[in-house]
């Protein structure tokens, strides 16, 4: 049940994408998101989706994982596309149909479809990053990419450490929650039936032990870190130093070309 949450989940493998430098993947994802919003026409979005499909194939991640990652945000996609459907008015266009206060223009349909595809590409694209990169490596990359901000006294290392710890504890807390839920279910807890108030009340026996154990864990971790003389990022060296390789350069070239092509559709075929 809780294990179905796939956001931030790692899908171990040994493909080109898995081995690619995490900084490149991180920057590539940011670039991809930017390009998604530059490309405004069906051709651009289509290209972006095709590129993503190719990447999933290269990473050997089954397409059903995309569906899994989309499941939790499906309501948001539906909500925004419905809003677009009814509130975008086409200038000078004849309405497709109108009923009561609702009027749908072809322009609205176009916006709704493009926007949902865009959000889908966005989620699937960012999921690909976490699927192919373990969280620890990812925060390393983030720290390395953000390092220039350190000059402005921005606590880059601390932020990265906090993220690493938070990500590290998600699976632990999920496991813990399942254990506690099982223990209370074994004592006859009813978690998924009853009125809203009853359900909220049924959560107390799960949340109280969960919070207590999370606080205990946090305090244990702090003590353990202090025992090993942790004192922040200054002068700290790494066990695994990130280095760009020739494969990374090749990946970067492919990525830049693809992103440029997707972005270019905006100006090359403006009439679409």
């Amino acid at each position: 049940m809780l294990r179905d949450i796939t956001i931030g989940q790692h899908f171990p493998g040994d493909s080109v994408l898995h081995r690619c430098d995490p900084r490149l993947k991180l920057l590539g994802t940011v670039g991809y998101i930017a390009v998604l919003f530059v490309a405004g026409n069906p051709l651009g979005i289509g290209l972006a989706l095709a590129f993503l499909a190719a990447l999933y194939a290269a990473a050997r991640i089954p397409y059903k994982m995309i569906l899994k990652s989309l499941k939790p945000i499906l309501p948001i996609i539906l909500f925004t596309s419905v809003l677009n459907l009814f509130f975008v008015s086409g200038q000078g266009q004849a309405p497709l149909f109108s009923w009561w206060v609702f009027t749908v223009y072809p322009q609205g349909v176009r916006y709704a479809v493009l926007l949902s595809l865009r959000v889908i590409a966005l989620i699937a694209g960012t999921s690909l990053l976490t699927y192919t990169t373990s969280p620890i490596v990812l925060t390393d990359a983030l720290e390395s990419v953000l390092r220039p901000l350190g000059r402005l006294h921005f606590p880059v290392h601390e932020l990265a450490m906090m993220m690493t710890i938070a990500l590290r504890f998600i699976p632990t807390l999920i496991e813990e929650t399942e254990k506690i839920m099982n223990a209370q279910k074994a004592r006859g807890a009813l978690l998924d039936t009853g009125t809203v108030l009853q359900r909220v009340k049924a959560l107390v026996p799960i949340l109280v032990p969960l919070f207590i154990s999370a606080f205990n864990r946090a305090s244990d971790l702090a003590v353990a870190m202090e025992c090993r003389c942790y004192r922040g990022g200054e002068g700290r060296t790494r066990l695994k130093v990130l280095r760009y390789t020739r494969t990374d350069a090749l990946c970067a070239a492919v990525l830049v070309l693809a992103l440029a092509a997707i972005a270019a559709t905006r100006w090359l075929v403006p009439g679409l």
Binding site: K179, N182, A183, R187, G188, I206, V208, P209, I212, S213
Partner: peptide
């Protein structure tokens, strides 16, 4: 069945609330 078979999990003190 859960009332028929009582289960005490590992480290059950974590379920107290």
């Amino acid at each position: 069945f859960r009332f028929l078979v009582g289960l005490v999990m590992q480290y059950p003190e974590y379920q107290l609330f």
